[in-house]
Design a protein around this nucleic acid. Structure first.
Length: 593
RNA sequence: GGGCCGGUAGCUCAGUUAGGGAGAGCGUCCGGCUUUUAACCGGACGGUCGGGGGUUCGAAUCCCUCCCGGCCCGCCA
């Protein structure tokens, strides 16, 4: 926006004309060329008229630095504005968080470079509800079906801006407020400071007045710019959608424009919405510039100008659609430079596309029951151009990768590439860019934490973790507590996925029946345990006892698993029993309690 | 059909900026921990870097082409 061009004569293409110059795929370009290197840490190559992009960029191990270079190269005014935005839908799922998290890392990198940054997020809530969602998230973030709410009320509000639709749960000010509240709450959970803005409010406050005036004041130019992108744009097309004062719906038939009074006349006609027709009420009325909205292809670039946006990440669906037209509109309708763009790949959940209607969604809140915020933030710090799958079944892999990434930061991994990435990105991932941790946190391997989660007793968990060497002797109580917090998360994971760690120590004696040899062997083992031995010894005794009684080792273990877990398999039993209360183990082995 | 992005080991991914030894973790297999039972340790197996062609002394990396997948190319956002 602030850059250079955009004098008074918005010519063909703002600055230079190489088509690739406006590619939003800034993390894919091989770019290079240019001359003056940006030098070690300064960046900001000033004066130098055209040529624009010049300056060979230094290599960065963290993609957010590449983006930050692009932004700084434009010599932006501060605060630098980073924007994201979504239209409210039924569920604020993890996919929506790309908008927030990708921008966040760029914001943090810029702040780290001494820049003042404002990260905003627009809830594009003046958009009309186009179809009734099949799933909604309630105020607690739980996903529920339409049966939980007044679906009829939603159906009657098709075509109405989200901000004018009551919250289906009857709590927030509106449907839009409910949804924005969910997003904000999740951002808070991830400790991401983002300023939520309501698009409806921006209109109501007159923020878009100038943009609307510009658009309606020079319809021919707008039509010229827009027509290559949209077939519907003809000589009659008026890119402004008043809200019908009678029925509250967004309308699209404008019959008159009065630039003096800043009003438009309209007729509330039927509207197509994804194959369905939303009926208009037929009302004829007059609306001010604040009582309507611009269509998306104009609204988006208008937001850039209104908010002074310097950078905006967006999903790949926008890359070939609204981005090119947005660039054109920004330069040739509003006379300003579009922000630095960045396309991110979508990711999938358990191998499938996110889909709230089919229930294939997961929220930040749900995920934080399964892993630490830092791990989730790490997921978003990975390269945005890779299509990634978030596989809940194999969440342990993600956590393991994070742990390795963390170890790399502390110089414990022999992998130069990973180490270079970690050295730069880790402080941002843990949210401590200005005060990086100097000591590596204690991390229990995730699957081991899941094993500990089979027993509720906190002392048991700590003892076994210590005995297995996962907690240093001199660890502070706080550090130990922090490490053990992962046990509850891993336990939730095991329960949620019903995987091979989903075992539960049985407090009551399961129904069992053993043949005489096995029973005798169990009695012997009980005696051994009663005599007082550690886990390792018990493990060894299990083998010996089985042999002594001519019992297959596997059969004997199965008996043990049946007694303690009511299952045929389980974790390494000896070490496990060694940490449990002795009387309990002895009684159970004797099938007495 | 056209455009954009992606395709590296069974899985999850680094490596492509700047051409030079194809890598990690997990899984699998084998072994170790006196001892077949998920955690810990060691080792091995495992890849035509999607296919083909080209440039080069040398290509996962650069160029061309083809295949596969996602997205866009109506409306909406």
């Amino acid at each position: 926006m602030s850059a250079d061009g955009a004098a008074d004569e918005p010519t063909e293409s703002g600055t230079d004309d190489a088509p690739a110059a406006d590619s939003p795929h800034i993390l894919s370009e091989q770019s290079a060329l240019g001359d003056g290197p940006t030098g070690g840490g300064e960046g900001a190559s000033d004066d130098r008229e055209e040529a624009a992009d010049g300056s060979a960029e230094a290599f960065h191990a963290f993609w957010a630095d590449v983006v930050a270079d692009k932004i700084e190269a434009r010599d932006p005014e501060e605060p630098i504005v980073i924007k994201g935005g979504v239209s409210p839908s039924g569920v604020a799922h993890l996919g929506n968080f790309n908008e927030i998290m990708r921008g966040y890392f760029v914001a943090e990198v810029l702040r780290d470079r001494g820049r003042e940054v404002r990260q905003v997020f627009t809830s594009d809530d003046k958009d009309p509800l186009r179809k009734v969602p099949r799933k909604l998230a309630n105020a607690d973030g739980e996903i529920v079906g339409l049966g939980e709410v007044d679906a009829g009320a939603l159906g009657r509000n098709l075509g109405v801006p989200y901000t004018s639709i009551p919250d289906p749960f009857g709590e927030a000010e509106s449907y839009a407020a409910h949804f924005a509240g969910l997003l904000k709450a999740d951002a808070d959970r991830l400790n991401v400071p983002v300023e939520m803005l309501s698009n409806t409010d921006l209109y109501a406050d007159g923020a878009f007045d100038d943009a609307v005036r510009t658009v309606l004041g020079d319809l021919d130019r707008v039509r010229d710019v827009l027509s290559p992108y949209q077939d519907k744009v003809d000589d009659e097309y008026v890119p402004f959608n008043p809200v019908c004062e009678a029925c509250g719906k967004i309308t699209e038939t404008v019959t008159g424009i009065d630039l003096e009074t800043e009003t438009v006349d309209y007729v509330c006609t039927d509207m197509d919405a994804g194959g369905n027709t939303i009926e208009g009420c037929g009302h004829e009325g007059t609306a001010t510039f604040r009582e309507g909205k611009l269509p998306w292809r104009l609204e988006w670039p208008a937001q850039w100008g209104v908010l002074g946006v310097d950078f905006e990440p967006f999903g790949k669906d926008h890359a070939e659609g609204s981005w090119p037209s947005g660039v054109d509109v920004a330069r040739n309708v509003f006379g300003e430079e579009p922000p630095v763009p960045m396309v991110y790949e979508w990711f999938t959940l358990n191998g499938e596309a996110f889909s709230s209607s089919e229930g294939n969604v997961v929220t930040v809140q749900e995920l934080l029951e399964l892993l630490e915020p830092a791990v989730l933030r790490y997921f978003f710090a990975l390269h945005p151009k890779k299509a990634r799958d978030l596989d809940i079944e194999r969440l342990d892999q993600l956590v393991d990768r994070f742990d390795r990434f963390e170890r790399a930061y502390f110089g414990e991994v022999d992998d130069p590439d990973l180490t270079a990435f970690a050295e730069r990105a880790y402080p941002f991932v843990v949210g401590r860019a200005d005060d990086p941790p100097t000591e590596k946190p204690i991390r229990l391997p995730y699957t081991f934490a899941a094993v500990l989660g089979m027993v509720d007793d906190p002392d048991f968990r700590e003892r076994l973790a210590r005995d297995e060497g996962h907690i240093p002797e001199d660890a502070s109580p706080e550090a130990v507590d922090a490490a053990l917090a992962r046990v509850d998360q891993a336990r939730n994971w095991a329960e949620r996925t019903e995987n091979e760690y989903d075992y539960r120590l049985q407090t009551d004696l399961p129904a069992v029946e053993f043949d005489d040899e096995v029973a005798a062997a169990l009695d012997d083992l009980a005696e051994f345990v009663a005599a007082g031995h550690d886990g390792e010894a018990i493990q060894g005794a299990m083998y010996e006892t089985a042999r002594d009684h001519d019992v297959e080792v596997s059969e004997f273990f199965a008996a043990g698993y049946r007694l303690f877990f009511d299952d045929t398999q389980g974790p390494r039993l000896g070490e496990f029993l060694g940490e449990l209360e002795r009387d309990y183990v002895v009684d159970r082995l004797r099938r007495e309690a």
